[in-house]
Design a protein around this nucleic acid. Structure first.
Lengths: 199, 199, 199, 199
DNA sequence: ACATAATCGAGACGGTACGTCCCGTCTTGTT
DNA sequence: AACAAGACGGGACGTACCGTCTCGATTATGT
């Protein structure tokens, strides 16, 4: 009688260092958070800051995109708590969360990459969409669906379209408005958009 | 009575070749149009394709950003002709123009860069905003103002906000929707947004 | 009792390739042998002919001088066999060796550089002196000392001066005589000089 | 009856500026005197130091060699006055002149170029030989011939060979001796060589 | 006096090579 | 087998000069 084998057989040799892996991802996020675009990121800079050989990076990720995708994936999108009382208040909370991200050093990575490197690195975007964008979209969809249920929004509302309008407008300001964003921007957006979506 | 001398006298030495300048900008746009991002662009590739020495580029532009900005600045944004009958139709035309640009090889440059390289190269964006984005924004503002005048839109409408909602939504789809954009997307956006802006 | 560790431990990382080093030096000598002066030598040409990246050259030598010095240092001066019978015959052999070097393709490097680039690149010269000039000087000194011992040369002869006279005269002809050197030049030099040095 | 034409008709147009020509040659000699080898000399540096356009240089000389040759040709070889009493004293004077040149800033050009750039630029050397080397050789030949006449030197002396021995030895020390040259070097050379040439 | 014409300075032109940086791969000895 | 260290061939960077080529301005001569 033999000892029970583990389900996935452990390969021979020294196991990969979790410490190295973490250091690499930390270094990557640090550099992105410092304002570096994906294209400017150099593997050598990451390896150096992580105190790691380049091989240790290439062994895990075959290119920069995948490394960045994994790095960003570790940043759970921290959604704001929603009061759940009125659709209007919850939407304002969600839009506010998008704005505030711009100033938080680590979570800023998400915005940095989403805004800058989106369609240059499609594979990155695909993975990134799942962990960072979809949860936010889903939260907003949820609010909109609830609004339809409570009758605050019209029954034939295209939920996807509603989300696009609200998020797209917020991003437009984030990206192309001159000067700082006004404090009450989310409120004003919702008040302009909501009447068109209401019953 | 003598003729007034021009304020800025012609500088000494051989004047810079307009031909070379054009060739450089053509080459730059060709490469961007071929799908190359600003980061992937190499000055050597531009010089080679333009049949020009690297010096001739560096003499005029001190870095890639400024070259790309000038190159894009030569692409006048070709606004669609507006029927001027109804606000709804004109807005649909303008949104359609944003989408169609993605497929026209040369003008595609504008979208390529605007979408990908915007905030990695802020100086680029600043110059680019003036020649490519502002005219489109102004055209849309004009339509909205006309709508207020004719009573199609409510009198207290925030024109800037209206523009942000329409353009932002369109860009949201362009960038983050999965799959191709539906033929009637501009129409559907306008129909979801307009009721909120109407009188 | 343990074995003594070597004083300088092997440095970390992949060791430098001896093959590359050899290829670089071969390429350098080839190009010099083809009549190229040190100033005309381009690192890129060497790298290309050696099938090597420029970095691999700069990693080893910080400038052309040092590379050329090392390259020439690999060319051991092939001294002619000396009969050892009479001082006169041996001196003629040594002078002949200086002349013949001019025509052998690889060893020609030595003369090329010694004659052309000597005091433009003093560091080069210093290293080169040790491996290429000194052995020849020493051989000639040896012959002269032997001559003093056998009484063929006068006892108070300044060996260094004797060497300078013989070599200097030969080089003078090599460098500034018009036309080809006569076959019996070494013989004639020795016959003009030796009487002054003889007992 | 017509006015007497000058022998060489003056061509139409603005005549070449002698001032520019002088400035160019001065600048060239300055740079060579500052220790710059012919290969390191850049036309642009000469033009800049002379306050002259590059065209003005290329109009007169088709390459660096010819410019340097002409520049050096303006430096008349300043031969030492010879006492004419004994062959020994005159030869010592001539050898001393070779050594002293090394320290005089402008005349140093002659040595610099003769020693360093001789056979890399054969055309240069050819012209240079005429104005700088030949007069010195001729002076030495003259002394040797006089010595044959007075019976101080043997009648069958090869004058050319005598010259080669004396000059070659001196240059050998100049070039390859370590440390400074001893004050009495010319004297010692002559005393080692002369017995072999004497009657 | 005025047109003609070669030369002047300045500096742009298409090139070549420089020495540096980083790429992604590869080889070391050690863990 | 994975690790850090670091060398490898390669490609682009931005700079310095090359020798050639315009420019407008200058300076002579021949009408």
């Amino acid at each position: 009688m033999t000892i029970q084998e583990p389900v996935t057989a452990r390969p021979a040799g020294r196991p990969r260092s979790e410490k190295a892996e973490k250091a690499i991802i930390e270094a990557t996020l640090d550099l992105i958070g410092d304002g570096m675009g994906v294209a400017e990121l150099s593997i050598e800079a990451i390896a150096s800051r992580a105190g790691v050989g380049k091989t240790t990076i290439y062994r895990r990720w075959s290119n920069k995109e995948e490394l960045v995708a994994d790095a960003l994936a570790t940043l759970k999108a921290p959604l704001p708590p929603l009061a759940g009382v009125s659709v209007r208040d919850d939407l304002i909370s969600l839009l506010n969360a998008m704005r505030e991200d711009k100033d938080r050093s680590r979570t800023r990575c998400v915005m940095n990459v989403m805004m800058s490197d989106a369609d240059r690195y499609p594979a990155l975007m695909e993975r990134f969409r799942k962990v960072a964008i979809e949860p936010r979209k889903e939260a907003m969809r949820e609010v909109l669906r609830r609004g339809i249920g409570t009758g605050e929004l019209r029954a034939d509302l295209d939920v996807e379209m509603g989300m696009a309008i609200l998020s797209g407008t917020m991003i437009w300001y984030t990206k192309w408005a001159s000067g700082d964003l006004p404090e009450d921007l989310p409120e004003r957006i919702v008040d302009h958009v909501l009447p068109g979506l209401a019953a």
